[in-house]
Design a protein around this nucleic acid. Structure first.
Lengths: 142, 142
DNA sequence: GTAATGCCTGGAGTTGACTCTATGTCAAGA
DNA sequence: TCTTGACATAGAGTCAACTCCAGGCATTAC
């Protein structure tokens, strides 16, 4: 599989794919006799794994460490497990934070909905709605 | 409240606080006559909001846009709501991705646990465990 | 055979978000 | 009075993670 195909399939740019190989995140990809990269199934699997870990915020550094252990063979299984467990812990924490942010967002959106509703109501009644809206904004904004 | 106190309370560095003000993320903070920043309640609230949004990955750019709308008054309530809704959508998507990553992590950790167990078993039996472990690694790693 | 296309490399440039440095002011304590 | 420490500013530097560029082969399409 050529680099452009892998790029298309994975959503990573060709530059990124070459970059990952350069820094050792991907082990050297097989080449055709004319020097063109020819990705195999294992490469693709690793790329998928990297993609999954990267997009959830895991730094490249950690992945490098992990793959270095993989290279070193079975002796390092415990160490690898430890890395993954640590990442799991961090991921869970991050998700909890995001849930908090999500709650805040919900709350603010809800606030805006109420604000709009009340502004409309004030308009229908024909009241001077300037002060009222101002008050609402105190609860709603920033 | 002085900048060092705000820093301590918020967990943002004093540099970051000044930086946020410089780029307009915080509106100009009140100063004592000698020019020292004196943060008020509203500043602190905004800092909390920023912190919450930033740590869940929302870019500063978007926050700037949002606060610019806040400055412009009630006319922009709908626009602000739209921004928040969009961010909510993205956040939900990101959390789903993270859940996927988490599943993969669990699976791999589980795999390592099994691998270790089997390796130990093989040792107790006293079998030649080299090939066996190799096989396991095929399922377990990358 | 030649032009376009896709690949290659090394290395420079970019982006977002800080973080640090040099230099200076000011208020308070020894 | 002198020193110390917190604060101020402008602007340079850093870091992670790409992204782009110049210059050069190879294969394919006409």
């Amino acid at each position: 599989m050529r680099i452009s195909e892998v790029s298309e399939q994975s959503g990573l740019s060709v530059d990124t794919l070459r970059y990952y190989e350069k820094i050792g995140l991907l082990s050297p990809v097989n080449r055709t006799k004319s020097g063109i990269r020819d990705y195999n199934e294992l490469d693709l699997k690793r790329i998928d794994f990297i993609k999954c870990m990267r997009r959830s915020g895991l730094p490249i550094e950690v992945l490098l460490e992990y793959f270095a252990l993989v290279e070193q063979g079975d002796e390092t299984i415990e160490a690898r497990k430890t890395i993954l467990q640590e990442q799991r812990t961090q991921l869970v924490a991050k998700m909890a934070e995001m849930q908090e942010t999500l709650n805040l967002l919900e709350q603010k959106i809800q606030g805006y909905e109420t604000a709009v509703l009340m502004a409309e109501q004030a308009l229908t009644i024909g009241a001077n709605n300037v002060e009222t809206t101002q008050n609402m904004m105190e609860r709603v904004s920033q």
